[in-house]
Design a protein around this nucleic acid. Structure first.
Length: 401
DNA sequence: ATGTTC
């Protein structure tokens, strides 16, 4: 793709084995021409979004674009690995159904919202009467060093969806660690084949949508950058806390909500902005891939997910793919896959895992066939030196509700 | 993606 007239460098990091839509690369070049854009990197899961592509990282100078964040600020993935759980099969499905079905009762909801917004996951430790397993999880969360956000925008959000998964491709999954590689992270994170895990993909729900509405489509320059980034930091903390609460439910389902069962824990934001001086790194459906740091590549129900190690490549803006990437729009998936598959056959995936959904349309919209195959994505990331494979995560029960 | 909407 090379250099555009404005001087921004556009690069697609992918391989010939990866299916790529021309609309996706067109959108990549389009955003590369936005004010302040110096570099645009498309990752192998690149696919068209609303105006801007998903699966890309952008470097801007002195400009931040809230519209690139869109309506799910802080969206990301969380992985907690625990010692092998005793529940399997139908029992595990029943337990997942139970624990993701009932509301979390954690005292004062308003206080919970404030803590999530101002302090993030670790802030939960300030709440009185926190359940033991949740306290153990919160204690593992890193200290928040982000910008302070001021009062939480309660007026914007109305009800409180904290602790809920949401729609689309968001999910909570009870998995098993599959093949592990000899990478140093395997030992550092205590990964062993056969260990259990909770993998959560979710974001900032109605809060993110409200922020999107408020900040609209205007680019931030000058002092408004700091104001927006402070608000974004609050949304990211809220989203991280949301994933932690969802993880806790998964631990309850696994019967592993205790400090001595947890092996390791990490959270990866794939929709956000990182500031370094006057450079702003936008990740739009792109996972951080700093040298030696763990990152998550999300599968699509019928496919495994992967724990990867970043390689810190500046060519990829220290970013990796966040998932398989859509191949069909939701409408296309409904139209094409309804003829191909009976609804009943979709409760169990080709990997033998179970899917729990409230909205049966999601079985088609988020069917693995609606996504690119994940193996070529992993291959191309490794071949281009963006990330290395650490462990495979095999889904047992996927919850979407 | 969204207490979303055709």
């Amino acid at each position: 793709m090379g250099n555009l007239a404005r001087g921004s460098v556009v690069e697609l990091i992918s391989g010939p084995q990866v299916w790529m839509e021309s609309e996706a690369t067109r959108q990549l070049e389009q955003v590369a021409a936005w004010t302040g854009c110096e570099r645009a990197v498309g990752l192998p899961d690149l696919h068209p979004g609303r105006g801007s592509p998903v699966g890309a990282a952008f470097q801007f100078r002195a400009v931040v674009h809230p519209s690139l964040i869109g309506s799910d600020a802080g969206c990301g993935a969380h992985l907690t690995v625990v010692r092998k759980a005793s529940a399997h099969g139908a029992n595990l499905v029943r337990r997942a159904d139970q624990h993701y079905g009932e509301a979390l009762a954690i005292g004062d909801r308003r206080r919970l919202f404030e803590v999530a917004w101002e302090e993030g996951p670790r802030g939960l430790l300030e709440l009185p009467g926190l359940p033991e397993g949740l306290m153990a999880l919160a204690a593992l969360a890193p200290m928040d060093r982000g910008l302070k956000s001021g009062p939480p925008p309660l007026a914007l959000t109305g009800g409180d969806s904290l602790g809920t998964i949401g729609g689309g491709n968001h999910f909570a999954e009870l998995s098993q660690v599959g093949q592990v590689s000899p990478h140093p992270l395997t030992q550092q994170l205590g990964l062993e084949r056969g260990h259990s895990a909770v993998l959560v993909h979710s974001g900032s729900r109605g809060l993110g949508a409200a922020l999107h509405h408020e900040w609209g489509n205007k680019a931030c320059e000058g002092p408004s950058i700091e104001v927006y980034l402070a608000v974004l930091a609050g949304a990211v903390r809220w989203a991280r806390t949301n994933r932690l609460l969802l993880t806790y439910r998964g631990l309850l389902a696994l019967g592993a909500a205790r400090a001595d069962r947890i092996v390791s824990d990490l959270d990866v934001v794939h929709n956000g902005v990182e500031a370094e001086g006057e450079l702003y790194l936008h990740r739009k459906g792109a996972a951080p891939a700093e040298a030696g740091a763990p990152t998550l590549l999300l599968g699509s129900r019928g496919a495994p997910s992967y724990l990867l190690a970043g390689c810190g490549r500046t060519r990829s803006l220290c970013s990796s793919a966040h998932g398989a990437g859509r191949k069909m729009t939701r409408a296309e998936a409904r139209a094409k896959l309804k003829d191909k598959y009976l609804r009943k056959s979709l409760a169990r995936t080709r990997l033998g895992s179970e899917v729990l959904v409230d909205d049966p349309e999601l079985l088609y919209e988020e069917h693995p066939d609606a996504y690119k195959p994940i193996a070529p994505i992993v291959e191309s990331l490794v071949q281009s030196g963006v990330a290395e494979v650490v462990a495979e995560l095999l889904p047992k029960v996927t919850v979407k509700r």
